[in-house]
Design a protein around this nucleic acid. Structure first.
Lengths: 114, 114
DNA sequence: CTATTAATTAGCAATCAGGCTAATTGAATC
DNA sequence: GATTCAATTAGCCTGATTGCTAATTAATAG
């Protein structure tokens, strides 16, 4: 598969491109956002973090049925996709949603179909 | 798997529920829409059909690099998810986009993050 | 220093997704 | 009725996703 779908790649990509064009960034954003939103747990996580403001990993993990490591992986993916931001505070990690970005991309795509 | 993710199910589901609640329908819509939009080829198909109006399967398939059967499967999925509508005309099949639905769901989700 | 707590990482198994080619269906044409 | 053309279906294979448990890391508390 020469056409590498960035959306599904988990590892942090070492962006070698000097400065991707806006079009390219838009494609990557759509890839990332829609790959992330494809999973119901990740949609819930994003909504949950957005509405509560900041959340620790534990608060998020306890709210879901699936195991903590599974939630942790969803969180990691959302961070890689730039939809969540994380900061370490002592031994907890605090997540917050990049709501502006999410809202803008969704809004743009909804506009395409109006 | 008791929790059946309708979004990813390929075959037409025999909806046995008498009349799903609005909340349930919203969840199914999100499942379907975001599962569909997760693949770049399907995003392109939806945009393409939306902007051109009606398209035959052949017109769509010829526009993409992947094989006709692969495109056909994407089309079938989009129909199952209610994002495309298809009608047989002679030996061709004409697809059109359910843009209103797509736009509404995306708009609603973009609203969540504003 | 050790015990506890927060969270991630490693590793494995099972399912899902998406690509292909070959075969089939069904309408139109000769 | 045989052929051609539009399109789907069948079947297969490979890689990605997602779930779990167990192990690890790292910070705090005792």
């Amino acid at each position: 598969m020469p056409e590498n779908n960035t959306a599904s790649r988990r590892e942090a990509k070492t962006s070698r491109a000097p400065a991707a064009s806006k079009a390219e960034r838009d494609i990557t954003l759509a890839d990332n956002l829609f790959a992330a939103l494809a999973h119901p747990a990740r949609r819930q996580i994003l909504l949950s973090v957005h509405y509560r403001g900041e959340c620790t990993a534990g608060e998020i993990a306890n709210r879901f049925e699936c195991s903590w490591p599974t939630t942790s992986r969803h969180l990691a993916m959302l961070v890689t996709c730039d939809l969540l931001t994380v900061s370490k505070q002592g031994r907890t990690r605090v997540y917050s949603a990049n709501s502006k970005l999410i809202g803008e991309v969704l809004s743009k795509w909804s506009g395409f179909f109006q």
